[in-house]
């Protein structure tokens, strides 16, 4: 196959990887602060619907993406309040947020079903090439998150809070505030990832638009060992698996569509199993306080 044949496939992989990448980077920051937010799927859905509603209302794509991120922040704030202030179980709250998010988006989104938008315009590079602003945002975000975690003082503080909140507290760091900020950032990213799906990738709204991508993003964080660079690689891998579904028929592979549809989910299970086989590396990279509620007086 010539270069011109491969380019659309590569572009497709990049596009399919972007929502996973953005959502996973946000969750990575939240988990690095010690908070496991299983509500990514719900925050993505709410972000997707909000972005679609704003963009199809004529306010423009940038406003749509921003509104989507803010909607994610709103739901993340509820999660943060429940887990950080009420000290509720993070697993249970994450599930509750996912259910609330799917319910709310299905309820508020019924007027938008089967409407479509034109995808976002590419920013031209000349020579017939161009780039999609949200795909580039995802790549930039990877670099930023890497720099923040590995090279900045604030990132060090965040990691300290995730490793040992009691120590961080004893050092005078505002543990709860830092965790709030990390969870809200995760919500913004999940909302933005949903916005990308609704106004750029598909671009339309249906109930349950994200189709488990929020959960795959969660798996991606584990797969990447909480490292941004590997998150990017993992997202590309998933993007490739997703694109394979569309191109398998064109390549003459006679497999029923349902079996191809199972691929991303089965791949997640296989990858998680391969990762978990090495408990030592796993333990070295997992934030030590992940998922445990923390209270200054307890």
């Amino acid at each position: 196959m010539s270069l011109s044949g491969w380019l659309p496939i590569l572009a497709g992989v990049l596009a399919a990887a972007t929502p996973l990448l953005i959502a996973a980077l946000g969750e990575l920051i939240a988990e690095k602060s010690g908070v496991l937010n299983l509500g990514v799927e719900g925050m993505m859905l709410v972000g997707a619907l909000t972005a679609f509603a704003v963009a199809s209302g004529g306010a423009g794509y940038a406003a749509g993406a921003l509104a989507g991120a803010l909607a994610g922040v709103g739901l993340a704030a509820l999660f943060a309040w429940l887990t950080l202030n009420c000290l509720a179980s993070q697993v249970a709250c994450g599930l509750a947020i996912t259910m609330l998010g799917s319910g709310l988006s299905a309820y508020a989104g019924r007027d938008y079903v089967s409407r479509t938008l034109d995808g976002m315009a590419l920013i031209p590079l000349g020579g017939g090439f161009g780039f999609d602003p949200l795909i580039v945002t995802g790549l930039l975000l990877t670099v930023l998150v890497w720099y923040f975690l590995q090279r900045s003082r604030a990132g060090l503080v965040l990691r300290a809070v995730g490793e040992s909140p009691a120590t961080a507290h004893a050092l005078g760091l505002p543990v709860r505030c830092i965790r709030w900020a990390a969870v809200l950032f995760g919500g913004a990213c999940a909302g933005l990832a949903g916005a990308y799906l609704a106004i750029d990738y598909t671009p339309m709204w249906v109930e349950g638009l994200s189709a488990g991508r929020g959960w795959i993003a969660l798996a991606l964080v584990v797969f990447a060992g909480w490292r941004p660079g590997r998150t990017l690689l993992g997202a590309w891998l998933y993007g490739g698996v997703g694109i394979l579904q569309f191109h398998a028929q064109a390549l003459g592979i006679a497999v029923p569509a349902q079996f191809l549809g199972m691929l991303p989910y089965l791949a997640t299970i296989v990858v998680l199993t391969l990762i978990a086989r090495d408990p030592l590396t796993q333990r070295r990279h997992t934030p030590a306080s992940l998922g445990q509620p923390w209270h200054p007086h307890a």
């Binding site: 509750a96 609330l100 799917s102 319910g103 109930e207």
Partner: peptide, 12 residues
């Protein structure tokens, strides 16, 4: 879909 809102809200 309002029942989904009620259910999620109840759990929260």
């Amino acid at each position: 879909a309002i029942s989904g809102v009620f259910q999620g809200g109840l759990l929260c």
